[in-house]
Every structure is written in C-alpha cells, then in structure tokens.
Amino acid sequence: MKVNSVSKHVTVVALLLLSTAAMAQNTELVKEKWHWNNKTRQDTTAGYAQVVKVDNVLYISGAVSTEITPEGITNVYRALEQSLKSFGTTFQHVVKENLYTTDIEAMKKYNYARKVFYNNDFPAATWVQVSRLYMSDAKLEVELVAHLPEK
C-alpha cells in the first residue's frame, strides 16, 4: 500500500510540473498592429503604433488637431474612426476615451462635434487640460480603448 501511495504522489507531482511548464511556455503576448497603412505597422521614428490589438481589445494612440474648432474636432474623430475600421469596428465598441487639450473651455464649447460620433452611446471618458502635447502646435489629442465583439 505504501508503494501505491508514493506512486500516486509522484504521478500528481509530475502532472503539476508538466502543466506548469506548459503554461510557462505560453506567456508570450500576441499583438496585432496597424499604423496608417505603413508596411511595418508602426512608426519607428517616434516609436509607436497607431493601433495595437491584444485579444479582443484595441488600444488606439492619440489622433491630433492643431485647432479646437468643430472642423478640427471632426478631423480627429474621423482619424480615430479610421483606426477603429482598421480592425472592423466602430465607435459603438469604444469603452474608454482620454482627451488631452490645451484649451478645455474651447473643447467644452464644441463638444457637440465629438458627440455625433458616439450616437448617444458614450464611453467612460477623461478630459485633461495640458500645457503642451507631443506635437508642439497640437491643441487636441484623443486616444481610445475599444472592445471588439466576440466572434
């Protein structure tokens, strides 16, 4: 009986070690990228990709405008729309929006231009006024997180 008990314990330990080793081998994060039809799918000069997809989540880098006007805001959201379309989705799948601007009052004034894109299905959002953005003449930058529908 003692041998059977030891044999069972050895078998259980061996199975645990094998499953742990199998899980450890599968730790690589799979990322799909899109960057404005760039063959490398990323900007190697600045060091970023416009869209990174992990599992069913899209992380969309900021789109910018040099003016906070209805036209400037619309252009930012059209660029974001193109980023969403690169993975076959729309603003209805956006769950988080981060907006950075050098003039929060102007953004609030022209917010109606942004709201059109969400069709009354607004995401969680954070708006922050900053003193400057990466592009020195930019006045607005918006980034998104979207969840793709499960297939």
Rank of each mutant, 00 (worst) to 15 (best):
M1D: 12
K2Y: 05
K2D: 10
S5I: 14
V6G: 04
T11Y: 08
V13M: 14
A21S: 09
A22L: 06
A22Y: 06
M23N: 13
N26I: 07
T27P: 02
T27N: 03
E32V: 10
W34D: 06
W34T: 02
W36H: 15
W36A: 13
N37G: 08
N38L: 10
Q42T: 13
Q50D: 15
Q50T: 15
V52L: 13
N56D: 05
V57H: 09
V57K: 11
V57W: 07
I60G: 01
G62F: 02
E67H: 01
T69D: 07
G72T: 01
I73V: 00
T74R: 12
R78E: 12
A79K: 03
Q82R: 13
S83L: 09
K85M: 07
G88A: 14
K96I: 04
K96Y: 04
E97M: 15
E97Q: 15
Y100H: 15
Y100I: 11
T102D: 12
D103Y: 01
D103M: 00
I104F: 09
K108H: 14
Y112I: 15
R114E: 06
F117D: 02
N119Y: 08
D121E: 09
T126Y: 11
W127Y: 13
V128E: 06
V130L: 07
V130H: 05
A138R: 00
E141A: 12
V142R: 00
E143L: 04
L144H: 01
L148V: 03
L148S: 04
